[in-house]
């Protein structure tokens, strides 16, 4: 599963960078006209060579814009549900456009729970790389202490930041939300070449995670993760354990980035459907863990058997 997730996450990151470049290219081509070549950036001039073979877009089309935080594809506007929660509570009014744009993502999260965290969010890519780096450090002999926070910390962070955000009238919870920071980081890096404070924060966060506790932020702090935990409690697409095939080796518990207990068949809202537990299980040829579609009320297969 990890291979597929790497494909989706890296392509999401590449697509985000590409969208900003496409946006810039269209504006630039519109400003300069068809005859002039664009040569102020390597990527833009490469795009110019590819696209100029066709007919150059003379006008700024603007079919796509945004990133992971809020995106527009033609007329379809999509936003993160956390954007709705923070903006609505801070402003104390419901914006209809924002409500409409979070509908589709909300449906996906109701179906897939925290799948956004492990399949789409680029920060989880770095967080998992940090886990791997930590493993290498351990083998070399450099290991610092590991600590963990209690499980309700993420929900507590979300609740507190929403309350304080409503008092201050500032969307506090979204200030350190990695998908948003990556979106704006890409935007500024491509267009102006500046590194935003959010990106610096993410770099230090990542280094801290490598040294002290890999994947800690996603697991215990991230307000988006907490929101999707609440929304995805009765998700349809989930990991399930088949009792008859499990030999209780509990290797899955050791790899679980969310500190859950897959060996006991425990998959609450915190499970982000990443499938790392399935990978180790399949590696041992047990195949006791698998993705299933299940309605909330229904009994699972293991109970029926």
């Amino acid at each position: 599963m990890r291979r597929y997730r790497n494909v989706t996450r890296i392509s999401v990151l590449v697509l985000m960078v590409f969208l900003v470049y496409l946006n810039r290219y269209e504006k630039k081509a519109g400003q300069l006209g068809a005859e002039q070549e664009i040569s102020d950036s390597i990527v833009l001039s490469a795009m110019d060579r590819v696209l100029a073979a066709e007919n150059k877009p003379m006008l700024f089309r603007g079919d796509f814009e945004g990133g992971l935080w809020s995106l527009r594809i033609f007329a379809l506007s999509l936003s993160d549900p956390l954007a709705f929660v923070t903006s609505t509570t801070a402003a104390r009014t419901i914006s209809l456009t924002l409500l409409l744009s979070v509908l589709l993502p909300t449906v996906f999260i109701l179906i897939g729970g925290r799948f956004f965290c492990s399949w789409i969010c680029p920060y989880s890519l770095f967080a998992e790389a940090g886990t791997g780096l930590r493993g290498i450090l351990r083998r070399v002999g450099l290991e610092y202490f590991t600590f963990d926070l209690p499980r309700p910390t993420a929900k507590m962070f979300l609740a507190l930041s929403v309350i304080l955000g409503a008092i201050l009238a500032v969307p506090v919870a979204s200030l350190i939300y990695p998908p948003r920071l990556i979106t704006e980081g890409v935007y500024h890096l491509v267009l102006t070449g500046t590194v935003t404070a959010g990106v610096v924060f993410l770099i230090f966060l990542w280094l801290g995670e490598v040294v002290f506790s890999p994947h800690l932020f996603c697991r215990r702090v991230c307000p988006g993760g907490a929101l999707f935990t609440l929304m995805g409690r009765y998700r349809l697409w989930r990991v399930e354990r088949v009792d008859s095939l499990c030999d209780s080796c509990a290797l899955c518990n050791r790899v679980c980035p969310d500190d859950l207990d897959p060996a006991a068949g425990e998959f609450p809202g915190e499970c982000d459907n990443c499938g790392l537990c399935m990978d180790v299980c399949d590696g041992r040829d047990q195949h006791a863990l698998r993705y299933v579609w299940r309605w909330p009320g229904r009994r699972s297969r293991k109970e029926a058997a």
Binding site: N23, E65, G66, W69, R72, S79, T86, S87, A169, T183
Partner: peptide, 12 residues
Amino acid sequence: SKCIRCRRCGQV
């Protein structure tokens, strides 16, 4: 309080 800082206005 209302702006979600998505940077879509600048891109459009």
